[in-house]
Every structure is written in structure tokens, then in C-alpha cells.
């Protein structure tokens, strides 16, 4: 294919527009506060340091971190286990209601949290679970389950059942055959689905806003709190340092699963 000059210039421009905010985050995080409030912007963080990170890495951040880690961990473990069992049922058994379940999962996946949080709030209020880790975890598990089931189902179906049959002919029980043959091959799928659940729970903002009180914030709420209008003067280098601390683990994990997620979302179209 011919490579013209114009497309490459435009390509460079695209890269610039998408990288600039990220670059600006890093740059501002390293600069001292008075430098950021100069008449002209400072383009490179010469003479900067990591003191902004120290300022925001305080007890409030650690409390949010703890809350987020626990809720995320509960969500990932429970959702992965439940979705794994359902994926086996859907792709390794024929049963009445199988197709109905898959279609339900697809529809539920599309339900916007924004269309349901009013009554989820009332429900948790009734159970005394407002502003608790358990309450938030329950909603998160339900929120990530549909896509996790859909994703894992794809992985299980990708492993030929003939392999299990071979093991069964050699004398394994059906369950044993599954765990000896298919389960190890499923590891990448489990990792990808787990990371997906992790990212969803870790980044979630809407339900956390609805369910949690200001004294009990997950990490995204903590970051948002740093910049809300009630702050007289926003410490921008501190906020950018906070944004980096929130974003780094997410970016690392995201790079792991990006391919699998795109496949899951448009698989219907690509395969057809």
C-alpha cells in the first residue's frame, strides 16, 4: 500500500491530540504549585519533584484505597466464580432455558445503572446496607456478571470438547476431565475476565456516588472530591498526582485485556 505524506501528518496530529492531556497530567504533577499558576504555562517539568505525590498520599487516600481494594476484590472473586459456573453450564451442557439465559444476560448487560440506581438505593436502604462495602459489592457483582459470563462462555467454547472426550475414554469422570483438560487451558480467559471485573469495579463512579456517603469514599470519589467547587483553591499538581496514582494500575491491567474485551463486544459483528 502507498504511504502518502498527508496521512502521516494527520496521524501525527491525532497522536498529539490524544497524548497531550496525558502528557499534561504528568507534567503538572511534577511541577511546584506556584509554577503551575504562572502567567505562562511551563511545558517541561525541569526542576520539578515528586512532592505533589507526597501531599495527596495521605490518610484519606489510604482509606479510600483500602475500601476500593476490598470491594474490588470481593467483586472479582465472586463474579469470576459465579460466571465460571454459568459459562460451563451454557457451553458444555444442553438444557431447556439455555438460550433464554444467554439472551437474558445480553439484555441485562445493556441495562444502564443510571436507570436503576433509584430503586437499588431504596433496596439497600431497606436492608441497612447503604454506605457499606457489602452493599456496594452486591451491586458491582451484579453489574459485571453479565459481561463476564458472556466473555467466559466464549473462552470455554473456544476449547474443543473433544479433548475432554479423549480424557473420558481414558477413564476420567466428566468433571475430572473438565478440570484436568479444559481448566488449565482456560487460565487466560479467567485472567482476562478477572481483569475486566477489576477494572469495572475499580473505576466505577455512578453507583459509588449513589450508595456511599462522603466520609466513605472509593478511590474515584476521592479523586473527584479533590476538585469539587467547594475547594477554594484547587491544588492542581496534587490533583494530577492523584490522577496518576489512580490511572497507573488501571492502564497496566487494561493493556492485558484490551484485545479480549473488543472481541467480546463486537464479536457478533466480526464473526458474521
Amino acid at each position: 500500500m502507498r504511504k502518502g505524506l498527508l496521512p502521516n501528518i494527520l496521524g501525527g496530529l491525532v497522536a498529539l491530540v490524544w497524548v497531550f492531556p496525558v502528557y499534561w497530567m504528568v507534567n503538572s504533577a511534577l511541577l511546584p504549585a506556584d509554577e503551575v499558576r504562572g502567567k505562562n504555562p511551563t511545558w517541561l517539568p525541569f526542576g520539578g519533584d515528586f512532592s505533589s505525590f507526597g501531599r495527596v498520599f495521605n490518610e484519606r487516600f489510604l482509606n479510600s484505597m483500602k475500601l476500593s481494594l476490598i470491594v474490588t476484590l470481593i467483586t472479582v472473586v465472586v463474579a469470576l466464580l459465579f460466571a465460571f459456573l454459568a459459562a460451563i453450564a451454557v457451553s458444555r451442557f444442553t438444557w431447556r432455558g439455555r438460550k433464554a439465559l444467554v439472551i437474558t444476560v445480553l439484555i441485562v448487560q445493556m441495562i444502564p445503572a443510571e436507570g436503576l440506581f433509584i430503586s437499588q438505593y431504596k433496596m439497600l436502604q431497606g436492608w441497612g446496607l447503604l454506605n457499606t462495602m457489602i452493599g456496594l459489592s452486591i451491586l458491582y457483582i451484579a453489574a459485571v456478571l453479565p459481561f463476564t459470563v458472556w466473555m467466559l462462555r466464549g473462552f470455554v467454547e473456544g476449547i474443543p470438547v473433544d479433548l475432554e472426550h479423549a480424557a473420558m475414554i481414558d477413564g476420567c469422570s466428566r468433571t475430572k476431565a473438565f478440570f484436568i483438560v479444559t481448566f488449565p487451558l482456560l487460565a487466560p480467559g479467567l485472567v482476562a475476565s478477572g481483569v475486566y471485573a477489576f477494572l469495572q469495579a475499580w473505576n466505577e463512579f455512578t453507583l459509588a456516588t449513589v450508595i456511599m456517603s462522603p466520609s466513605n469514599r472509593t478511590v474515584p470519589l476521592w479523586l473527584q472530591g479533590l476538585t469539587s467547587a467547594s475547594n477554594a483553591a484547587i491544588d492542581w499538581p496534587g490533583v494530577m498526582a492523584g490522577a496518576i496514582m489512580v490511572a497507573i494500575p488501571v492502564i497496566v491491567f487494561f493493556l492485558f485485556v484490551q484485545n479480549k474485551m473488543t472481541d467480546g463486544m463486537v464479536s457478533g459483528a466480526v464473526k458474521g
Partner: peptide
């Protein structure tokens, strides 16, 4: 380069992106 940059932008958590854009 373009792919890497887009991937990072895609991975950015919503609220982290919001703080950056508010700052911009």
C-alpha cells in the same frame, strides 16, 4: 505510536480524565 497513544487514552479511568480536562 498512534496505537499506543490511543490505548493509553482508552485505559484512562473516567474520573482521572475528567480531572485532566477540567485542568486543561
Amino acid at each position: 505510536v498512534v496505537q499506543s497513544v490511543l490505548l493509553i487514552a482508552w485505559a484512562m479511568p473516567v474520573i482521572a480524565s475528567m480531572t485532566i480536562w477540567q485542568w486543561l
